[in-house]
């Protein structure tokens, strides 16, 4: 076979690889049988819900292919979903509307931590006092620890929106001298 023939084979092979590879990469939500985790021979797959069937009906995350591609807090607040708050009738449901502004953020924007959406999903005791001290400013937070799965990283990067979305937490412009000067003008 001459070089022309070989080149044709290579381009043909690359073309078909190209067709095969991006399929799951650009799929909206991967069906369970194709996700690489579930055993495709499991007969129970027939009765199991595929992610796309449910998640496609919820508010889309405008950040693109992050997390479940869903804005979970919006889905809850806007009534797309109505997840149960408790199993035991005597469980006390507490929701706290209190923002904490964290200012030790180096050169990045300050962090606004809103208790409200967090307590809609979680109980106070999930974070306090095991992960976060009750008193604001007493927990030795660092991005290194968070990225290692501690503090906020217990959920963010695992089940809640991932840590590549810096601005969702670092959302308050820092109170720099420059800003103060600009405000006076």
């Amino acid at each position: 076979m001459g070089q022309h023939g070989k080149a044709r084979w290579y381009s043909l092979a690359l073309f078909f690889t190209g067709l095969w590879l991006p399929g799951p990469l650009f799929a909206e939500w991967t069906p369970l049988a194709e996700d690489g985790l579930h055993d495709p021979d499991n007969p129970a797959l027939e009765v199991m819900q595929n992610p796309g069937d449910a998640l496609s009906r919820l508010p889309r995350d405008d950040a693109g292919d992050v997390g479940n591609k869903v804005r979970w807090v919006q889905a809850l607040e806007q009534g797309y979903i109505e997840p149960r708050t408790n199993i035991f009738p005597e469980t006390k449901i507490e929701v706290l509307d209190l923002d904490i502004i964290m200012k030790h953020t180096g050169s990045t924007a300050y962090v606004r931590f809103p208790h409200k959406p967090h307590t809609e999903w979680l109980d106070c005791s999930n974070c306090h006092d095991k992960i976060f001290k009750m008193k604001a400013g007493e927990t030795p937070l660092s991005m290194l620890a968070i990225l290692s799965g501690e503090y906020c990283g217990r959920c963010h990067g695992a089940v809640a929106f991932p840590l590549v979305l810096c601005n969702r937490c670092h959302s308050v412009p820092p109170d720099t001298l420059e800003n103060k000067v600009n405000q006076r003008q």
Binding site: Q49, P51, A54, L55, N68, V70, W72, I81, P83, R84, T85, N86, I87, T91, E120, W121, L122, D123, S125, N126, C155, V159
Partner: peptide, 14 residues
């Protein structure tokens, strides 16, 4: 994803 449509985190984690 399946469970949090139906239950809040606090049900299982609390």
């Amino acid at each position: 994803w399946f469970h949090r449509i139906r239950f809040r985190c606090k049900v299982c984690h609390n």
